[in-house]
Design a protein around this nucleic acid. Sequence first.
DNA 1: CTAAAAAACGGACACGTGACTGCGTTGTTT
DNA 2: AAACAACGCAGTCACGTGTCCGTTTTTTAG
Lengths: 354, 354
Amino acid sequence: MKKSAKPRIVRSTAELAEYAGLARTTVSRVLNGHPGVKPKTVERVRRAMEETGFTPNAAAMRLRGKGDYTVGICMETLFTPPMVTKLALLQQRLRQRGVKSLIEVVESGRVHEVVQHFRSMQADCITFIGQFDPAEITNQVAMLKRLKVPHLLIDQSGIEGANTVTIDREQAMHEVVAHLYELGHRSFGLIGMNRPVETVRARLRGITSALAKHGLDIARDALSLDYLVDREHDFAFGREVAAAFARRDDRPTAFICVNDEVAAGAVVALKEAGLRVPEDASVVGFNNQDICLMSIPTLTTVDQQIDETVEAALELILAQTSKPLRRSVARLIPAAVIRRDSTGPVPSARRPRS
Amino acid sequence: MKKSAKPRIVRSTAELAEYAGLARTTVSRVLNGHPGVKPKTVERVRRAMEETGFTPNAAAMRLRGKGDYTVGICMETLFTPPMVTKLALLQQRLRQRGVKSLIEVVESGRVHEVVQHFRSMQADCITFIGQFDPAEITNQVAMLKRLKVPHLLIDQSGIEGANTVTIDREQAMHEVVAHLYELGHRSFGLIGMNRPVETVRARLRGITSALAKHGLDIARDALSLDYLVDREHDFAFGREVAAAFARRDDRPTAFICVNDEVAAGAVVALKEAGLRVPEDASVVGFNNQDICLMSIPTLTTVDQQIDETVEAALELILAQTSKPLRRSVARLIPAAVIRRDSTGPVPSARRPRS
DNA sequence: CTAAAAAACGGACACGTGACTGCGTTGTTT
DNA sequence: AAACAACGCAGTCACGTGTCCGTTTTTTAG
């Protein structure tokens, strides 16, 4: 648009050179910042690029082995806010480091397909975010290791030989239990903790051992009514299960929920049953999503420490720039309990004599 | 792993052919499904691929002009649930059609950078989802048109000469106003409707003309207290603004909110002020997010018709496979009011004499 | 067993780029 | 004016793929 010069579509450095009245090699040297080119010539090339909007062909550069370092990011779902946050943050941090990223959302059972796509795009590292089918992901990791393609799993634990970054769910539940125990709670309701995925199982293990540490027994001192409600673990699930709890005489004094939506639903149901939160019942969520601040009272929850997770992931990805890691690395990020208004001292009538 | 054959890393069709004991051209014919190859040979190649995990180099194929049709998707944000839903659905539908997609999340002011990346990756169509800076996006669209690169904007209106798919926000607000008018409401509170972005302005225009159609005047019969609260338009914003409304004598009977979070906040504030929803005040949200069903009462809102939007987008993207459209296309998707429990008849004390 | 048809082979080219080489053309300095 | 850098030019190769074409090998039909 500048000097209304010959507006033309330029598709290669050769054409760009022709447009600028230079040799292709000269243009190439300018593009790659080589020395021995007059500033005036550099300016001519720069100007030609601007006028034509030319961009070097990434395919050709990659073929020639001079492409950008590229990470393929495999998302299990985009419907869980913390996952999306991790994705957005990771891509942002990668870009800051000059690393390109490719993103694909994968339907279950099609992980191989997406991994193939990334491999065909010559991704230098393949990263998975979310909780995939263990068998499927194990296969993929094995294949990638055999082919010496660097990889990283975020938020997926329990995969042998894989590089992983994940928050320490067991430790997180230890802190939750400790927090509730300090408040005097001795009976616990578990809501949505029966999902047969490793990320929930790990939490259940944490609860079990944490209770044991305080002399309690999960089989005796905790209760789950999940089987009563057959639906995904969302707000309505929490509401229905908590409503069932509220109708029982042996109602626990504290509820540990699988996520914040479920916890928010539980709070609503408890209030609808005439109970006060936290005076009559405490509720803890998981994830520290926005909804925690929308619930009344605000929700005590576990923060996933997304910043730290992404930072560790970034580090591991960059550590594999040249070649795969010698030994597989599993990084555990400590989680933090965020204390808000949905947890409080156990009701005096039920206070344990200590 | 199968026959524990020579496990080797194969990087090109030439190496694959060597591995299988065939000529590279023969392997190539198999890969491209050409006729004149014995089934037994096809099987040999298939097996070699499986054993070595070989994947053709996408860069080379693209360079040769035989790459997959690829769409670059530019996301303005991943923090708005409807946007993410559109993204996930669009990518899924594209994959079903054999179209590859690249996704990048863009920070404001860096659109050009991302577009350049897509162009260097030889994306065949560049799609933008979300509400970008108008000046920036106008520039980018102009450049893409000049370079004859197909493009599409989703959820962005008001860009001259661009191909767009977006819901009809004016019509949506007409329906909202009609719904409330039928219920007897004659005075309206607008919450979060003052944001200077086209997608909100369009709604405001819709409200204005809809009110006019019913003989009302937005300047006289609607009220905004947005200026009292300086923060992004989230749950807390809705709560604070609605609290301010509740303290006034000239409180409107119906509240039209910029999104569902704000509406949910407004409902909470109204209830905290001792008002009943919908008996004393009606509230309408926008987007039909999950939170609508978590609010008590459930929220009346406007559904974005994401399925239809994505379907229309898909159609427009595929229509540009060979070359850009002759004339730019702007598709408006009709939105739908979802009537739930947060809207009801106007309080009898204020019922208009009709 | 032989001839014909089918299949596989091997070489060449193009795609756009970066890097290298040798050679010509400037422009500056002595 | 001559010497000499500094700079720019033209040509070449490699990367991995698809495709074409002529040749050789294998298979099938008679």
